[in-house]
Nucleic acid binder design. Structure first.
Length: 423
RNA sequence: GGAGAAAUGGCAGAGUGGUCGAAUGCGGCGGUCUUGAAAACCGUUGAAGGUCAAACUUCCGGGGGUUCGAAUCCCUCUUUCUCCGCCA
């Protein structure tokens, strides 16, 4: 959620920048400013009436004490009148504020100045590439066949027990999952992150706080009976730790990491993109979340980007980093880098991580603030990134490391898997 | 699931209808003293809206109600604690 004062002071600039996300904000910003003016003027009148009411109520107390009942009753009648009109003003105020918030929520975050112009992922800017693309032997297979051959992931069994997109991992496959989870958590802890194990369900306030509601409602699993949402990422519970929180400057930097199952309905997905591990309804992810002071948030984004690169390097996977263009940038993000690993048998780049700076956009919804040096409260910045999402890492590991003998496990993981080769 | 108790400022904890945004203690900040620190003493110390600044308004778990007036009374929801039941 953007700040009204920012929109007031930088209207033309905001319209220009939002157009980079292909969002036409001209009309809505005018509406917002008008609603805010309305809100202020209603509040002003309401305040005056309430002040009058309060004053009279105090005087009535005094009049009773001095026994001046006649005057007291006269004042009473006045306050009753005031009460009625202030009640209707309060309703107006609530209605105006509600409409204002609804309008504000429609606006996406302003993209950072470095965001490239473009409409689709084809327009994303490649900023870095590392590692050698492996040359596979002629009989190389995609990961879903390998998973079956080695009997480490059972998609059919998942379909039977639950449905498509809910695989079983078994034997060495299950162990590999556990190894990756522990590896990613340990790496993060060594890099100074605090580990959390969050709830997998969140309430409505939390789903709203990180921007999943109302925009992505259909993408989340929902437990109607208790009004809970299944988390699509640990970002949701972890970031909501800071909902309605005022931090001290000394609390920074806040670096949290959490492993969780992630649940996504993925309504509307189909085709080769959803084959095997490429897109699941339930998957495992380790998420890093940072809360920072505004001046330092882009420095932090770089730090997170570098950190994620070290993970892929340790896993010996060829990867590249792209800067998302305006059209591909998510609603809440100001700047996002995607990490993609090359999946050698599918011969395609798979997105395994997305690291973003939301600036104060989430913080404004969350009411996540801090007291600066001058003692003023201001919105903090939030950032997060996957470090990393397992399924596509597993897909790439299986495909890229396949040999006639079996699938080789990268050095860094062996202490965790307890084996060198899937066979 | 059943019965009871409770929810107040960063923390602890008073306050049961009328200068209560809220005593007191701790903590924080500023100062006096000190070579420096501690102790002691003095002062200060919640948030939001609003304003050039003020005035003013709102907030004592959330929502609703009674009243001229509510932290205080009523209803409701949530959470916590104690006891019982069940249980990984």
């Amino acid at each position: 959620m953007l700040q009204i004062n920012f929109l007031r002071e930088n209207k033309a600039e905001a319209i220009r920048l939002l157009a980079i996300k292909y969002f036409n904000a001209t009309e809505i910003i005018d509406q917002i400013i008008k609603l805010d003016d309305e809100r202020k003027s209603i509040q002003k009148i309401l305040d005056e009436q309430l002040a009058e009411s309060n004053k009279l109520a105090k005087e009535i107390g005094g009049l009773y004490k001095s026994g001046n009942l006649e005057k007291a009753n006269e004042f009473k009648a006045k306050t009753v009148e005031l009460k009625q009109s202030s009640k209707s003003l309060a309703d107006d105020l609530a209605q105006t504020s509600k409409t204002l918030t609804e309008k504000l929520i429609e606006l996406p975050n302003i993209p950072h100045s470095s965001v490239p112009i473009g409409k689709t992922d084809a327009d994303n800017e490649l900023i870095y590439e590392e590692g050698e693309i492996p040359v596979l032997h002629v009989k190389a297979k995609p990961h879903w066949e390998l998973a079956k051959d080695f009997d480490i992931i059972d998609f059919d069994l998942g379909s039977k027990v639950t449905g498509a997109g809910f695989p079983f991992y078994k034997g060495q496959g299950a162990r590999l999952q556990r190894a990756l989870i522990n590896f990613f958590l340990d790496e993060a802890i060594n890099a100074g992150y605090l580990e959390y194990q969050p709830p997998l369900f969140v309430n409505e306030d939390s789903a709203f706080g990180t921007g999943q509601l109302p925009d992505k409602e259909g993408q989340m699993y929902y437990i109607g009976e208790d009004n809970f949402y299944l988390i699509p990422t640990a970002e949701v519970p972890i970031t909501n730790i800071y909902r309605n929180v005022i931090l001290k400057e000394t609390d920074f930097p806040i670096k949290n990491v959490a492993y969780s199952n992630c649940f996504r309905r993925e309504a509307g997905s189909y085709g080769k993109d959803v084959r095997g591990l490429n897109r699941l309804h339930q998957f495992d992810k380790i998420e890093i979340v940072q809360v920072q002071q505004p001046e330092k948030s882009y420095e932090t984004l770089e730090e997170m980007k570098d950190y994620i690169a070290t993970l892929l390097r340790k896993l010996e996977l060829p990867f590249r980093i792209v800067r998302l263009c305006g059209g591909d940038l998510s609603y809440a993000s100001a700047l996002t880098f995607d990490f993609e690993v090359f999946s050698a048998a599918q011969k395609m780049w798979l997105e395994v991580s997305s690291v973003s700076n939301f600036e104060s956009f989430q913080a404004n919804r969350l009411k996540l603030r801090f007291k600066d040096k001058d003692g003023k409260t201001q919105l903090a910045h939030t950032l997060n990134g996957s470090a990393l999402a397992l399924p596509r890492i597993v897909a790439a590991l299986l495909e890229n490391n396949q040999t006639p003998e079996g699938i080789k496990i990268p050095e860094a993981l062996r202490a965790y898997t307890g084996y060198d080769l899937i066979s």
